[in-house]
Design a protein around this nucleic acid. Structure first.
Lengths: 202, 202, 202, 202
DNA sequence: CATGAATGAGACTTCATTCAT
DNA sequence: CATGAATGAAGTCTCATTCAT
């Protein structure tokens, strides 16, 4: 086995998974620097030294959390963005997926909003890259919308920025606010405004 | 001092201001936790102990930076949002102001994007509150647009979220990217899409 | 195992011996404190826990290495020192044996030169004692040389110190230096100087 | 001032000196790895953090101790070795100086015998170099003795090795043994044997 | 007001040792 | 006998904060 304790645990979750969950929870609650390895270990029900059997360092732990969390996110975004449906439909799906993903991973969503605090410069670049690729994916959808005549001649990059920014803003409200709204409904309304505009049609 | 009678600060900036500028610069460059009081003091050209004559703690320094930076920002937003012009015009002015403010205060804009790292829970709440009040201001504009029949029956809160999220996204590109675009132009394009929509009008 | 009936250790070396060799190698390469039980186990081709079936602790491992290495050394010294030949011959044999022993056990010789790092106070005393007994053996040879009229009235203890110190110095050059000289030749030259003196005879 | 606290202390010794003394004492008593910065600080009567105002790390502290200790040693050796007196006289002075230096710096002498444990590879090389230069100095004396016809045709390098090895051995006895002998007397006797030889002159 | 030497709490990380399998 | 996952004591080092000057 490449990793210690890869076998099934009695409480139904691998040690690695327990550590990751505990770390996410601590990082989210206290921020990277205020969270201590001691507390993370306690939260995972393991000894302090055990953390280092699974992760090289505190930083590595943080980065792995981001890697895993963003892997699912980007894969999902790309999947729903890749169809052959009208641009509007695809945008709607992107928004819906993003908001639902955030709702399903509230702690990670909160952590991700803290920004790349405590990461090595190298990992920060990876993160910016990833963000760039997501924006590019959305831009592509907008551009295809323009080319297919579904959208007017708008700057696709700006649409992508606006759209993802709007989603980001909605996610903030979603994960921090108390009065929760249905992610799907928000996604639809957001898409509606981006495509149809807020202005009155005469 | 070389010029007696030139006032206590012959280099034209009060010690407090110099400290704040140095702290902003350090926080921006290294992040809150990696920045040291020693470096901040050196950057301000004062002794380490002097920092504590002006600010109770490192946290207080950070919070004061945010207080001052956001004060100007919110005041500006409120000012341009408050006129009696059409909603679209006011939204355009909001975007223009926000982007220009970010361009004029790049370091602060970068710092603000890092999120509330290192702040006391109490100050985080104040920050969320402030953000809420800004959103509320924008929401108000949108709502008045709806009421005045300039906008169709969209959810004003969502419009505010989308709009400010888009601005946020544009600011990120503005303060981190190299190829700079004119803030005003970006603001106009952003407003245009939000009001007119990306979709084709038939 | 490939050859049933070939005994429990078909590779020709008992587990204990393999562990000792690996430990010696690690201690020699990295020093006592930097060497890890993990690496020692890996080098011996056994599990970490197995080390503790053969040795009580890391210290015990170190001490056993010294015990074994010095056992052969002191036995050899005593053997060649014990004859009834002239003192000079016996000194020559002592030097030859010591240098050849070091050449044949380079790793141990290097380790022994590092001094009693990491040992318990008790074992350090044993070590000093042993060193004292070796010196005593050599002193005895010198004294007998004086008594037999082969040597002039020199302090036998000092001769022993000088002689063994010279050997020690030569061993250092032998086990660390690249340009190797023949141990036997060095031993002869060393003995020659100690007995005949560097000074010119008129 | 380049260093904090360079001014005179109330107890008549600079903080840096107190730290160095405490560190030497701890390193000597427990060895490099077993000595703790906490104990060193306590022994110097300063806080733990203060150590790091004067020395970058524990290693740096050790290395500085060696640098200072060996600086005086090598300077002394070179000084007494450099005269124009007969080789024998100079060897005698070298031995006397070395033994007196060891007697005057017993703790350092003990530490130096532990070998280069805990040092960076780079510093180890510096140390070996220094040792080589000392040997070279002694070798030079022996060679000049040969050239001046004071010594017979012996290998000067071997003489240097023997002589310094003998001194080393005597130092060990001196700093660890209980029954102390006068360094000067030991130095004379040692030199006598090396030059005249232990053997009887017929 | 200003300074910066001094402090010590606190965090990460290592690794010898144990013990259930 | 053998293993190696798990542990936690222990140690180094950082840095915000204080206070005597």
């Amino acid at each position: 086995m490449s990793h210690p304790g890869a076998g099934p645990e009695s409480d139904g979750e691998s040690k690695e998974a327990r550590i990751l969950r505990s770390a996410l929870s601590e990082f989210c609650r206290k921020g990277f620097h205020r969270a201590t390895m001691e507390d993370i270990a306690a939260g995972a029900g393991v000894g302090k030294g055990t953390l280092y059997l699974y992760f090289r360092s505190k930083q590595a732990l943080l980065e792995e959390i981001f890697r895993l969390g963003l892997e699912g996110y980007t894969a999902g975004i790309r999947a729903v963005a890749g169809g052959s449906e009208p641009a509007r439909t695809r945008l709607g799906k992107i928004a819906a997926f993003a908001l639902e993903y955030a709702a399903a991973n509230r702690e990670f969503a909160r952590l991700a909003q803290e920004g790349p605090v405590g990461m090595r410069e190298e990992f920060k670049r990876w993160l910016l890259d990833l963000q760039g690729r997501i924006l590019e994916t959305v831009r592509q959808v907008a551009q295809e919308g323009v080319e297919a005549g579904q959208f007017r001649k708008v700057d696709p990059e700006l649409v992508a920025n606006l759209f993802m920014g709007g989603i980001h803003s909605a996610v903030t409200a979603l994960v921090w606010g108390e009065g929760r709204r249905d992610p799907r409904e928000v996604a639809d309304a957001l898409t509606d405004i981006v495509v149809e505009g807020a202005g009155r049609r005469d």
